[in-house]
């Protein structure tokens, strides 16, 4: 009981994202405690150990797009519960909690913007919304972004941060892998660029569909990327995994992605690549 109470207290005292800007922030990697404002100015990269902290979709958009250029689309799409799915909680309740936490109705924000002056369609995943999982709304937003890109003759940038397909939508979510990949094939035939940016973490149904289909695939340092989670692999093969397995650096070494790009140069790199690939 005492332990339980203590746990509750700790939970209560943890500041919610609504309390932001918090005054102090601790780096999860090197445990350094820093002034929030200072870290925010450095794009949430730890000045001591260079750890790229997880950021939410709104912060990502601010960091990646030209100031004032982002115009959101499809914010009116909301998840429903096609299977009346209930595990330990109902899907409806999980959605409600995520809506309360993020103030939005899906795990992606999508819209039109310019990056380094180049017009593009942008889709950004928010890990805070049900682990950035891919459901019907997320899939639909991606397809609509691709369709807008084809109409406007511009490229697409998708920033992934996701545990994979959303189990509560079962096969509906599985099929979003096919739906989004098919849409990107259309973009490809139109000879328009697609840049896939992988941020921590990118797994499962997201990595096994659009995230790995970029003309150029960029990951942030330290991002963990894979098909199966490390725990499942360890259980399956019954052995320890090598150091750095499934890290962004590991994927570059194995020829699976193009580059690891520091957050401070990410925007200029994406802008320049879009410029090179535009007609």
């Amino acid at each position: 009981m005492i332990f339980g109470d203590l746990l509750k207290k700790v939970k209560r005292e943890r500041p919610s994202p609504k309390d932001a800007p918090k005054h102090w922030i601790k780096c999860k990697k090197c445990q350094a405690i820093m002034y929030y404002k200072e870290i925010a100015e450095k794009s949430f990269v730890c000045p001591k150990c260079d750890n790229h902290m997880r950021i939410n979709a709104a912060q990502r958009i601010e960091m990646l797009t030209d100031a004032g250029s982002f115009e959101e689309h499809d914010a009116n799409l909301k998840p429903i519960d096609p299977l009346s799915f209930v595990d330990k909680k109902s899907y409806k309740q999980r959605v409600e909690e995520s809506v309360e936490k993020t103030g939005r109705h899906s795990a992606v924000i999508s819209g039109s913007c310019t990056i380094g002056g180049i017009s593009t369609e942008l889709v950004v995943f928010d890990f805070d919304f049900m682990g950035g999982s891919l459901g019907s709304v997320e899939g639909e937003k991606i397809v609509r972004a691709v369709n807008r890109a084809i109409e406007r003759r511009v490229g697409v940038v998708i920033v992934s941060a996701s545990g994979g397909a959303r189990m509560q939508e079962s096969t509906f979510s599985l099929m979003q892998m096919a739906k989004t990949s098919a849409a990107l094939r259309r973009l490809d035939k139109e000879k328009l660029p697609f840049i896939s940016i992988l941020t921590d973490p990118t797994f499962g149904g997201v990595s096994a569909s659009f995230a790995m289909l970029g003309d150029i695939i960029i990951a942030e340092p330290g991002t963990i990327i894979g098909f199966a989670g490390a725990r499942v692999i360890k259980q399956t093969i019954g052995a320890e995994l090598p150091e750095g397995f499934q890290s962004a650096e590991f994927l570059v070494e194995h020829g699976l992605i193009d580059m690891v790009e520091h957050r401070k140069t990410l925007k200029s790199t994406v802008g320049n690549l879009l410029k090179i690939m535009s007609r």
Binding site: A182, D188, A208, F227, T236
Partner: peptide
């Protein structure tokens, strides 16, 4: 799809994604 070391090293995600595409 097999969740293993070699499968990840050789791009299990990419292989599946490419087929969908």
């Amino acid at each position: 799809a097999y969740p293993g070391l070699g499968a990840e090293e050789r791009g299990q995600s990419e292989a599946i994604a490419r087929n969908l595409y």
